[in-house]
Structure formats: structure tokens, C-alpha cells
């Protein structure tokens, strides 16, 4: 998958009340090149965990067929942890209400 020109990362946000939600989303890709453009194969059986600013577990979702995930969080510091067969990745983010965070995580 190479989605040059498209919005990187997570699923379409149509229908999501962005003004009132703090969205952290993205896509998990395997075997691509970290060149700023999402590429690689979507990982559709990864587990994505959201940890709060103290490292405490808050939520976990499986990725969808496109390797995508989404959290509805609260403003603040969060850590996104990706678990997949043979791989583990962590990304720290600063979330804001009204401005979705869209991640591309290569494993």
C-alpha cells in the first residue's frame, strides 16, 4: 500500500464530531520505508494500546483490515504501543481536542 497524496494514517473521520472529541488514530504498516509517505503492507492483526502520561493502560484496539486504529482520548500526553507478531513499537503523542493525531507506524 502506498497512499501518496492521501491523508496519512487512520481511517476517514467523516461523521466523527471532531470539535468535541480528542482523536488519536493511525495505521500500522510492515515492510515499508520510513520516508514520510505511508507505504508497506497494512498489518490487520496488530493490537494497539493507549497508555496515559504515567504509563498506565487506558485502552486497546485491534487494527482493521487496512491496519488502522482509532482512540477517543482526552487532551494530554499519551503513549501508543503497537503489538504484532514478532514486533513491538512505541510512539509518544500530545493530543488536543479538535485536532486529530494521525500516525503512521512502521514495524
Amino acid at each position: 500500500m502506498r497512499t501518496c497524496g492521501a491523508t496519512p494514517g487512520g481511517a476517514d473521520l467523516a461523521g466523527v464530531d471532531l470539535a468535541n472529541q480528542t482523536v488519536i488514530q493511525g495505521a500500522v504498516l510492515r515492510g515499508g520505508v520510513s520516508d514520510g509517505v505511508p507505504n508497506g503492507a497494512p498489518v490487520d492483526n496488530a493490537y494497539v494500546r493507549l497508555l496515559d502520561s504515567t504509563g498506565e493502560f487506558t485502552a486497546e484496539v485491534p487494527t482493521n483490515l487496512e491496519g488502522q486504529f482509532r482512540f477517543f482520548a482526552a487532551p494530554g500526553s499519551w503513549t501508543v504501543v503497537v503489538l504484532a507478531h514478532g514486533a513491538r513499537a512505541e510512539v509518544k503523542v500530545q493530543a488536543q481536542q479538535g485536532t486529530p493525531i494521525d500516525l503512521v507506524i512502521q514495524i
Binding site: 493507549l50 498506565e56 493502560f57 487506558t58 485502552a59 482512540f71 477517543f72 482526552a74
Partner: peptide
């Protein structure tokens, strides 16, 4: 989660 317990969130973050 602690955020639901404290009243910050109404549901899990996903």
C-alpha cells in the same frame, strides 16, 4: 480506567 473513575472520561478511550 482511572480517567473514567475520576470522571474525566465517560467511556473507554477507544
Amino acid at each position: 480506567s482511572p480517567a473514567e473513575f475520576s470522571g474525566e472520561l465517560a467511556a473507554p478511550a477507544h
